[in-house]
Amino acid sequence: MNTTKRQKQRKVLLMGKSGAGKSSMRSIVFSNYVAKDVRRLGATIDVEHSNIKFMGNLMLNLWDCGGQDGFVENYLTHQRTHVFGSVAVLIFVFDIESREFQADVVSYSNIIRALSESSPSAKVFCLIHKMDLVQSRLRVQLFEERAEYIRQASEGFKDEVEFFPTSIWDQSLYKAWTQIIYYLIPNAGTIESLLQQLAEVIDARELILYERTTCLMVTHVTRGMESQNPFIDRFERISSILKTHKQSMAKHTNLPPNIANFAEMQIKTGRFMFFITRLTENTNLAASIPPSEQVFNAARVNIMLVRPRFAELDIASKPRLGMQQAFAHGAEGGERERKDGEPAY
């Protein structure tokens, strides 16, 4: 019991220089802030902990570490083992506009060194942030130069460290965080194969699994022609469309954003049909299917039937009674008696 619980808690460190945009990023992704609201945030003092329940079995233990020199000094000395012990992921945020890039990298190296001592198996993601402030034609080049320079300073993590250009003003933020989350999900492979099966059964062009509160993509399945869709950034775009819509609904219905969820959204046109519906307690499933009323209805029924299967995946491999009851509510009671995943035509 105790061990399963520890497995579920994944410790994520969010670090970087003061003012780099760590807390802004966190507020937008996890706390339903709008990009322009983040200017209200003050400096982070010491470490702000937040526990984010993600996909049921995954609990993110996010440490937003204040970046002022005094705090960093403290992390590296007195709190060294406390901060850097048993870390799953380190996210280091660089400000592209920083005047002291060299100094940032030195500080980064120190942190990397501490990390390799205490949690050598951790994964490092570097986000080069505020890319919107760079002229668009210079972006790619500047990003690559910086990334290469930082990689050289990454010591033991040199080969694994991943870089993403980000900005809170476009979907690049979602793109980076989707990758991070994907790395953290323990049973991504199982979810993917189940999703693939589901896609075959309902003849979907594309299925995308989104986490409910953050609207981040967990995984997706694309079949046949749809892989030629010219919008390669569509997953992030839908993330940000959903997020924006959620905020708009929250604002106008006077509900707090964390519960202003839609139960279902359908769009039917002559070229495609699309719907997003709740799959499990923590996930939404978006499906793009061929334009046919029958396929559409069959797909909806099948997704309703497959819910318990995903709910099982959602909880740990060892189901606990209390949890299961909680999910039974979300999985439409009666349907659970049916054989899971069986196609219903």
Binding site: A260, N261, M265, I267, K268, S292, E293
Partner: peptide, 24 residues
Amino acid sequence: ENGNAEVVENGNNDAESLITMEKK
């Protein structure tokens, strides 16, 4: 697409959409 049955049937002519809310 290869001539299968769905191609003939063209779904709706006019786009339609709806959103149902969970808590409303």
